[in-house]
Design a protein around this nucleic acid. Structure first.
Length: 704
DNA sequence: TGGGAGTGCTTTTTT
DNA sequence: AGCACTCCCA
């Protein structure tokens, strides 16, 4: 037990061994957050303060949950399998499966992923004859999710105009349809679970008494509903240990409320706030840059990272002529680093938006440098996998209309839009699922759809006693999916993925051992929805890592390149349009990016960049100026330190930053430009006269 | 049924 | 530019 605590620094030790109180751990980047969290659990258990049974540990991603479980098993000799360690969604799913009846759900309820949800909303709009231009499905999904994440049902939704009135009605229709089909979306998992606990006193008491210690990871990312859920569970005297970093809150755009941290501090943690400020990851200059940047944010709980690792190198800054030029610079540097012995996997290229990866990929490919892009299509989101899962879903729950529509005519069985319209009309009339309505259909449609229903029935009979992997295999084969992809030109990879699905089922059965409520199939399908699977592509061992800054959170690399540091891109214009809060979130994003680097950090920008098919002229990001000059090493074209501190000049006579005079507006500075030739326009800041866009062909601008 | 042309969108993303 | 989606025709 004592060696659990060795090698912890003072604040870490304090946090791990806190008495039974609510506490907030402000854990800076690279300060040993996960270590503290897992050691806390291990310490509580090994000192006999709680059994594995009494701990609830919540994370946001499956990866984080897995890591926590793995590290915990390494610390204490217990079986972590039965412990309640998981994601918010995973734990809610577990609870709802255990109490499906009380929650008003069928035993085999299925989980809609975002794509399923969108399909469902589109179908709903179609059935109700609603103009999807006026009510864009995506926007409606967001509307519904945002309400659920605030804990607001359609019945309680605030209506302030006709448009919202309609949207609330659609929200209500959507709820009805989900209930009819026996499916829940991601937000519903949480809300349904919350309502269940709130409504059902014996159940609530049971869990409140059971969980004595509740630990939350990445607390800054919790939304209102998640916070309410935590408070509800902790209402019976459990102690909450919340770990987070307000400076790394980068998910406000999807409902995360940093304010939860302050509220938690005020209402629960009180004086029990511990700051972990010693950073074990980055060299001094990198940390100094991060600290200097984040100081510009007003809304902070306050924290200053330090390290005893030494200053290290300065931050390399490079201003390229174009995005292509920037890509070349980055890739040349990487090639040199790799030549000098830096593992390619330790080099990461980060960008604000995924579209930026293309130029970089192009250049990497051209130079023959292996690379891996994160953020692509995930395994369980592939069409062939979703098709196979849809068949399986129908075996488990025939009322699942989303699954029904996905495969009723795939592979094609001559069931066209006409037949399906009839079917949907019939289903609507008799208020039943599409599957059940098929029997009431007459004519040709009745025959073809009837044949599909019989296919499902036969599949169900044939597989009812098969173990899960064989069931999956049987369905892939007998549904006609396998045959379809065998004849398709580029179906080979899809076939391999389908084989992989059979393997995934086998692994799932092995790992899971005892299968929860609802049987192996339902559990496997839930698993498929909740854990979309790691991006499969390119398991290259020696590959350069490419990802968005968001995707990089929680990771670290020896060498990091932050690219595209230009006004409008990073900080992104859509965010800065949202005022100070938007800009502050962008700055936190930059902070996350900077703190990913261990030894060397590059920051770069380009003067021109292709965006949406046209060249944009760019101004260097304000964030570059927020890094103290003395921490920067400005590079010239060859990647060596430039003689003069100035960034490289652009080609033409007029350039960004140039002071000009205009006959009417007077003296101004060029801040942006776009288009070329006769279309070329520049944006000039005339101070008191404001910002103006001027066409170069007409406006007389004289350099001053 | 399926392919080709036309249209519109485009920040970040986990579950 | 590039992609997803819709629509229309063979």
């Amino acid at each position: 037990m004592s060696d659990l605590l060795t090698n912890l620094n003072v604040p870490q030790l304090q946090a791990v061994t806190l008495p039974p109180v609510h506490s907030l751990i402000l854990a800076g980047a690279g300060s040993g957050k996960t270590r503290v969290l897992t050691t806390r659990i291990a310490w509580l258990m090994s000192t006999g303060q709680v059994g594995p049974h009494g701990v609830l540990a919540v994370t946001f991603t499956n990866k984080a949950a897995r890591e926590m479980t793995a590290r915990l098993s390494a610390l204490v000799p217990i079986n972590t399998r039965g412990m309640w360690i998981g994601t918010f969604h995973g734990l809610c799913n577990r609870l709802l499966r255990a109490h499906y009846r009380e929650a008003g759900l069928p035993q085999t309820f299925q989980i809609l992923d975002s794509a399923d949800q969108l399909a469902m909303v589109k179908r709903l709009l179609k059935n109700l004859n609603i103009d999807d231009q006026k009510y864009p499905p995506r926007e409606l999904c967001h509307f519904i999710n945002a309400h659920k994440e605030q804990g607001v049902r359609a019945a309680q939704a605030e209506v302030y105009d006709n448009y919202t009135q309609k949207r609330v009605e659609l929200y209500s229709e959507y709820e009805t349809q989900c209930n009819r089909e026996g499916v829940v979306d991601f937000a519903e998992l949480l809300l349904r679970c919350y309502e269940l606990l709130q409504r059902n006193e014996p159940l609530r008491k049971h869990y409140q008494e059971r969980f004595r210690y509740i630990l939350v990871d990445e607390f800054q990312d919790t939304n209102k509903l998640q916070y309410a859920w935590l408070k509800l569970l902790a209402g019976g005297g459990a102690r909450v240990f919340a770990v987070g970093d307000d400076d790394q809150s980068i998910y406000a755009f999807r409902g995360a409320e940093v304010g939860n941290m302050r509220e938690f501090e005020r209402d629960w943690a009180g004086d029990n706030v511990i700051r972990l400020e010693q950073n074990y990851r980055s060299h001094g200059n990198i940390l100094a840059a991060a600290n200097a940047l984040i100081k510009h944010n007003r809304e902070r709980l306050g924290k200053n990272l330090w390290t005893d690792a030494g200053a290290g190198e300065r931050i390399r800054a490079f201003e390229a002529y174009s995005d292509l030029d920037e890509a070349r610079f980055v890739i040349d540097e990487i090639r040199e680093l790799v030549r000098d012995g830096v593992p390619a996997t330790q080099c990461a290229i980060l960008y604000r938006s995924n579209a930026q990866s293309r130029v970089l990929e192009h250049e990497l490919f051209a130079k023959g440098v292996p690379y891996k892009v994160y953020g692509g299509l995930r395994f369980f989101e592939r069409q062939e996998i979703k098709h196979a899962l849809a068949y399986l879903r129908l075996l488990g729950n025939a009322d699942d209309d989303t699954a029904f529509l996905r495969v009723v005519n795939f592979p094609t069985r001559g069931i066209g839009a006409r037949s399906l319209e009839n079917l949907q009309a019939t289903a609507h009339q008799i208020n039943s699922s599409l599957y059940n309505a098929a029997a009431s259909l007459s004519g040709k449609a009745g025959q073809t759809v009837g044949a599909f229903v019989r296919l499902i029935e036969v599949l169900r009979q044939e597989t009812v006693n098969l173990p899960l992997p064989e069931m999956v295999e049987h369905v892939i084969e007998k549904s006609g999916l396998a045959q379809h992809y065998r004849t398709e030109k580029e179906g080979q990879e899809r076939l391999e993925n389908l084989d992989e699905l059979i393997n995934a089922a086998a692994t799932f059965v092995d790992d899971e051992g005892t299968i929860g409520e609802g049987g192996a199939l339902a559990s496997f399908l839930a698993h498929a929805s909740l854990e979309a699977g790691e991006h499969q592509a390119g398991e290259g061992q020696e590959a350069v890592q490419l990802m968005s800054v968001h995707a990089a959170k929680g990771l670290e690399f020896d060498v990091v390149f932050i690219t595209g540091l230009e006004q409008g891109l990073f900080p992104h214009e859509n965010s800065t349009a949202q005022g100070r809060e938007g800009l502050e979130e962008e700055r936190r994003l930059m902070y996350v990016a900077v703190t990913r680097a261990r030894k060397r950090l590059y920051v770069s920008c380009a003067q021109t960049r292709m965006l949406h098919g046209q060249t944009r002229y760019c101004v260097p990001s304000a964030f570059l100026e927020e890094i103290p000059e003395n921490l920067l090493l400005k590079l010239n074209k060859k990647g060596e330190a430039a003689a003069a501190p100035a960034l490289s000049p652009s080609g033409g006579g007029l350039r960004i930053g140039q002071t000009v005079e205009h006959g009417r507006f007077g003296i101004g500075v060029i801040v942006a430009s776009e288009g070329r030739g006769a279309d070329a326009r520049v944006q000039v800041n005339f101070g008191g006269s404001g910002l103006k866009w001027l066409a170069l062909e007409y406006a007389k601008l004289t350099p001053v």
